[in-house]
Design a binder for these strands. Structure first.
Length: 212
DNA sequence: ATCATGATGCTG
DNA sequence: AGCATCATGATT
């Protein structure tokens, strides 16, 4: 692993959300902290397509909330959900097209203690009550990385000096296999196999880690 | 392991 | 009204 993670270029996020979601598996989510750069490997992600996808926030066109999705690729779309949680996405496709990828689970790699502590503070629980897969779940990973809408929505995720960015990762280990299946927690367009994850990986939370 | 429930506030 | 969720507690 490089001492300094190399940010993914904007062109990485120009293809369709489906393609970007698939290629983000094995890449790194990085955050600058007072203890150094905290990193985690992406093991689960979902694609949301835009105007053709009834499940997407952008389905009905631009609003104040989803404006980032219609902007240039490689930017953070962070939204507030269920009155308590945040979810974190990266915008895809050129400006005007609204695809995005939702991050659903990451595997902490560097500065795990910092991530664990943030996760515990945000959730209001004790750090030692958390299991190893404490960043598996879209809002859990936001807690671990301290991602919030007021602080991070609209951020350029291709720049290291953004403090939060996406970088080239180690990819997939031997034996790790990508699986696809229906997205979690939505009612519209349930069938579409737009969820991508590493099969049976311990940081993809059960019961969704082995089902297609 | 699975399942049900409630917390909580922004959105159009 | 509904929501791209989570922690908890009951149950097998």
């Amino acid at each position: 692993m490089p001492a300094l993670p190399k940010p993914l270029p904007r062109s990485f996020f120009e293809p369709s959300a489906r393609q970007v979601a698939r290629s983000l598996l094995g890449q790194l989510l990085c955050r600058r902290t007072e203890a150094g750069i905290a990193t985690a490997r992406i093991v689960e992600a979902e694609a949301y397509l835009g105007l053709d996808d009834p499940a997407a926030h952008s389905y009905k066109g631009p609003t104040e909330r989803n404006a980032v999705l219609f902007g240039p690729p490689g930017h953070a779309y962070v939204y507030f959900i269920y009155g308590r949680y945040f979810c974190f996405n990266v915008s895809c496709q050129p400006a005007g097209k609204a695809g995005c990828v939702l991050f659903r689970a990451v595997e902490p790699i560097a500065n795990k203690d910092w991530l664990r502590r943030q996760r515990a503070i945000a959730a209001g629980i004790s750090p030692d009550k958390l299991s190893e897969n404490f960043a598996s779940g879209p809002s859990r990973l936001c807690q671990a990385f301290g991602i919030t809408r007021p602080e991070h929505n609209g951020l350029d995720l291709t720049k290291r000096d953004s403090g939060l960015f996406l970088a080239e990762g180690p990819g997939l280990s031997r034996g790790e296999k990508v699986a696809t299946g229906p997205r979690i927690g939505i009612k519209d367009n349930r069938e579409a196999p737009l969820r991508f994850f590493l099969l049976a990986h311990p940081h993809v939370s059960p019961p969704h880690n082995s089902r297609l």
